[in-house]
Nucleic acid binder design. Structure first.
Lengths: 119, 119
DNA sequence: AATACCGGTTACAAAAAGGATACCGGTACA
DNA sequence: TGTACCGGTATCCTTTTTGTAACCGGTATT
């Protein structure tokens, strides 16, 4: 009778849901994560290649790659070549993100159309 | 023979995909959008109610609500009551986001498990 | 007239994110 | 020995985002 507000889902479930979505946002959000993932979809790259292709400074690149690696989305392999090179590549685990990325892509596309149409 | 790198998808398609995903991130990303959407899933709220429930300052709240409204996810209704009140509610259009939110939620949940297990 | 609530806005401070530049240790090559 | 490329870090600075506090116009209540 006197509940403050009517929530279809109880507050606990709500906040768990929110946390899960936030987790995902933390992993793929930010300015560079997605750019790097999509470049790596084209195959492995070395550090400087990524830096050039994405036009991103080494400091940021290094940080972003570490985060992606910590989340298991990207692998880092040191190659014993003339000047030591390091290869970054997508992991198989990164494929688990495809549902997320595909739904985001679809929504983004239709939303842009909608917004453009409305203006 | 001499292509710089082998991309399964041609670069144009890649960048369109990226842009679409970025659009989505712009809409639901950030610190507050999701919190507000999930509170509003429990039914409409007035400005101060949102401010209190989310513990968000009026300045930020105002900005976030404007953005959500611009994107058609939230409606703003001025009620002609004793002290004028304003009601914010989810639009039907906001339901188009459900695929995105559900997939993000699922991935976030399993990812957290994975990360926790690994540590 | 004084006070209080509502939906905001303004001006300012703090913190987080992102960027530019220089540099390091290692190896090769001229 | 000098130069160049590699992966990456350290330092400093700018931009963006978020937070704090006071305040405004409008209406109702005391």
């Amino acid at each position: 009778m006197n509940k403050k507000y009517s929530c279809k889902l109880d507050p606990e479930t709500c906040s768990k849901t929110r946390m899960a979505i936030q987790d995902t946002l933390d992993v793929v959000g930010g300015k560079w994560k997605l750019v790097l993932l999509s470049i790596l979809r084209g195959g492995k790259r070395r550090f400087k290649e990524l830096s050039r292709e994405a036009d991103i400074s080494p400091r940021i690149l290094s940080k972003e790659l570490q985060e992606l690696e910590m989340n298991g989305l990207v692998s880092r392999t040191v190659c014993d070549t003339k000047p030591v090179t390091v290869e970054y590549a997508l992991t198989t685990y990164s494929e688990t993100l495809s549902d997320v990325l595909i739904s985001m892509q679809k929504w983004g596309e239709q939303h842009r159309k909608k917004i453009v149409a409305a203006s």
